[in-house]
Design a protein around this nucleic acid. Structure first.
Lengths: 168, 168
DNA sequence: AATAACTTTCATTTATTTTTGAAAGTTTAA
DNA sequence: TTAAACTTTCAAAAATAAATGAAAGTTATT
C-alpha cells in the first residue's frame, strides 16, 4: 500500500471511530492527522489535507486543545501557528479519561445522588425500587470513576506493574 | 421531590449521557426506564411514558436486545410482549464492554494492523513515523482491549479482589 | 497608525441522525 | 381460514449536529 493511501485509511477510520464514541468526525480526523505527522502542521496544512473550511479547522483545533491533547507551537520566523498532538499514548489516555470524568461522569453522579435520595414519603413498590436501583447505580458509577482515576496512576506503582505482568 | 419528578429527571439525564457516548437518546431512555421499573413493561407502556412512536419504540427495543441488556418476557394470559432490563450492574458492564469491543475495537484493530504494516518501500521520514506511530497505537489498543476482557473476569478471582481492596 | 497576516466567531447552509406513522408482516384464537 | 391483536419495517419528515465562509477580531510589522 502506498503511504498516502494508508494514511488516508487511518484518518478515515479514526474519524468514524470518533463518531461512534460521541466525538465529532472532523475533530477525530484532525487528531489522527497530527498523531502521525512528524512535524507540527499549520491550520492551512490541515485544511488542505482534510479538505475542510477554515472555521471548521479553527473550532475543532480549539476543542482538541481544550481536551489537552493538542498543543500550539510557534516556529521561529513564522507568523502562523502550528499544532502538534500528544503522542505519548499513556498520557493521551489519561487526559481523555480525566476530561470525560470531569465533563460527563461527575455531573451524572450529581444527578444520581440527587434522585436516589430525593423520594422520601412515597411508600409504593415503584418508588422503593427506584430509590434502591438508582442508589446502586450511584455506587457503581462512583466506583468505576474512582478506578479510572486510580488506573491513571497505576502504571507508576510497583503493585500495578506486578498485576499487569500476572494478568498478561 | 416527588417520585414522578425524580424518575423523569433520571430518565432524561441517562438519555443525555447516552448521546454523549454515541448511543441514541431514546435507546438510553428506554433502558433507564426499564432499569427502575420493578415490573416488566409493554411497548405500549414505554411509548406512553416517553411519548414516542411505535416504530421508534420497536426499533430501539430491538437494538437494546441486540446489545443483550434488555430481555423479552411473556406474561401468562397476555398476548403482548413485555420487556425488562438487565439489572445486575456488573453483568450490564460486562455486556456493554463485550459488545463495544466486538463492534468497534476489534474492527479498529484490524485497520490499525493493516496500515501499520502496509507501507513498505517508502523511506521518507513521514512514512517511517507513520508506521511507527500506528504500530504503537495498535499495541496500545490491543492491550487496552485485553485488559477490558480481563477486567470482566477480575472480580471473580482472588488477586482481583485483593487489588481492588488495596486500591480502595 | 495604517496595513498585512493571520485567527475566531457566528448566522446561514448542508449533512447526518432520529422519529414518525401507515402499510406490511406475524402470531394467536375463534 | 378469517379476523383480531400485536410487531416490524421503511420511506418521508423532523430534529439535531456539523460545516461553511465572510465579517469581525487580533497581533505583528512597516
Amino acid at each position: 500500500m502506498e503511504f498516502r493511501e494508508a494514511k488516508n485509511k487511518f484518518v478515515q477510520t479514526w474519524g468514524a471511530l470518533g463518531s461512534q464514541w460521541g466525538i465529532n468526525k472532523t475533530m477525530a480526523q484532525i487528531h489522527a492527522l497530527l498523531m502521525v505527522s512528524p512535524e507540527p502542521l499549520s491550520m492551512e496544512d490541515i485544511m488542505e489535507d482534510l479538505q475542510i473550511s477554515r472555521g471548521n479547522a479553527s473550532m475543532n483545533l480549539r476543542a482538541l486543545m481544550d481536551w489537552g491533547i493538542v498543543y500550539k507551537e510557534f516556529k521561529q520566523g513564522e507568523r502562523k501557528e502550528f499544532f502538534t498532538a500528544e503522542k505519548d499514548l499513556d498520557e493521551l489516555a489519561v487526559k481523555i479519561a480525566q476530561e470525560r470524568s470531569r465533563r460527563e461522569i461527575k455531573p451524572a453522579l450529581k444527578v444520581l445522588k440527587e434522585v436516589s435520595t430525593a423520594v422520601k414519603d412515597d411508600k409504593s413498590e415503584e418508588a422503593k425500587h427506584f430509590t434502591d436501583q438508582t442508589g446502586k447505580l450511584y455506587d457503581f458509577v462512583l466506583k468505576a470513576d474512582n478506578m479510572l482515576e486510580k488506573a491513571t496512576e497505576f502504571k507508576d506503582n510497583w503493585l500495578g506493574r506486578l498485576v499487569l505482568k500476572i494478568m498478561k
